[in-house]
């Protein structure tokens, strides 16, 4: 690892000033669970490291019935996993976190860092996509809200500029009669997923589908939604046959990158299976919520 200058700002404002000053010459470290590996491999050699790990200002989980959920960027995976607020209103996030990486990584890694590293297999993005989540990105001159859908640009690349900081993740209030599930495929506990699918169904009074969302990870350079498959559900009674057909369409919407673990064809097939399973579980949960 190359030497660097180390700066640990005490506030968000100070962080934004430092980022503005050093731009491309600096890199943010949050938990460093991904960044340190990149630095150790010499893939990157920033002159300045800006440490936000101990920025308590961004370590929070807040909820209200109007604006929904707000998670500060430096909140650890483990805090999300154990949060009673999240278990009560967004349990799918707690379930997702329980199986993200390992206890050791969850204790130090942050939810903001997970989104910003933009590994397409990341576990955090698919359930956020299924819930229409957004993120707040700040720079010295102000902040903007971007959907998680528009957050990724390419493989390991996001819309966050060199002078910018992701400060918050927002998830709208979950409508009543909604069921959400996230399932992923991996070889052993602790491994990063090969593919993952999150499905959310909101049912209308008649029990048919009012709204469907399908978020997918590991099947394109960035996390994506299966928008064609989502449309097949809307207004329809959700049956096993419909789930089967929509899962096929979802699989066709993917453009997986082959890697050492799996070929593109393999990922395309497996995501179909996971969309199907997640859809069935989401439906069961939505029906339970409606009763």
């Amino acid at each position: 690892m190359r030497d660097f200058e180390y700066i640990a700002p005490k506030t968000v404002k100070e962080t934004l000033d430092v980022l503005d000053e050093y731009q491309e010459d600096c890199k943010i470290i949050a938990g460093g669970q991904s960044l340190l590996n990149i630095l150790k491999q010499g893939l990157m050699a920033p002159e300045y490291i800006i440490d936000i790990k101990n920025l308590e200002e961004l370590n929070y989980i807040k909820f209200d019935e109007k604006d929904g959920l707000k998670i500060g960027a430096t909140t650890t995976h483990r805090s999300v996993e154990f949060s009673d607020t999240i278990k009560e209103h967004y349990n799918v996030l707690s379930e997702m976190e329980r199986h993200l990486a390992t206890v050791q990584i969850r204790n130090w890694g942050t939810i903001g860092g997970n989104l910003c590293i933009a590994d397409p297999t990341g576990d955090v993005a698919p359930p956020l996509l299924a819930m229409d989540a957004t993120v707040i990105i700040a720079n010295k001159d102000g902040e903007r809200e971007v959907t998680v859908l528009d957050f990724g640009v390419d493989y390991y690349e996001t819309v966050v500029g060199p002078n910018e900081l992701l400060t918050e993740i927002r998830v709208p209030v979950i409508p009543s009669n909604t069921g959400i599930a996230y399932l992923k495929y991996r070889i052993v506990e602790g491994d990063a997923p090969i593919v993952g699918a999150a499905v959310a169904f909101t049912l209308n009074e008649k029990g048919a589908c009012k709204k469907a969302r399908i978020g997918m990870g590991g099947v394109a350079p960035i996390p994506i939604r299966a928008e064609k498959a989502e449309k097949m559900f809307e207004g329809e009674k959700i049956t096993d046959t419909l789930i089967e057909e929509a899962a096929k369409v979802a699989s066709e919407e993917t453009t997986p990158i082959p890697d050492i673990v799996a070929s593109a064809e393999y990922k395309k097939r497996v995501i179909g299976v996971y969309v199907k399973r997640a859809a069935k579980l989401a439906l069961t949960r939505a029906e339970k919520a409606a009763n």
């Binding site: 470290i29 460093g32 990486a101 390992t102 050791q104 990584i105 204790n107 130090w108």
Partner: peptide, 27 residues
């Protein structure tokens, strides 16, 4: 492994288990 993948380097920081190879000491 020195890369977060084996946890042989586990230590407790304020009671929480972390991989000490993947924690910048200044943190």
């Amino acid at each position: 492994c020195n890369a977060g993948g084996c946890s042989s380097c586990s230590v407790l920081v304020d009671g929480k288990v972390v991989n000490s190879c993947s924690v910048l000491a200044l943190q």
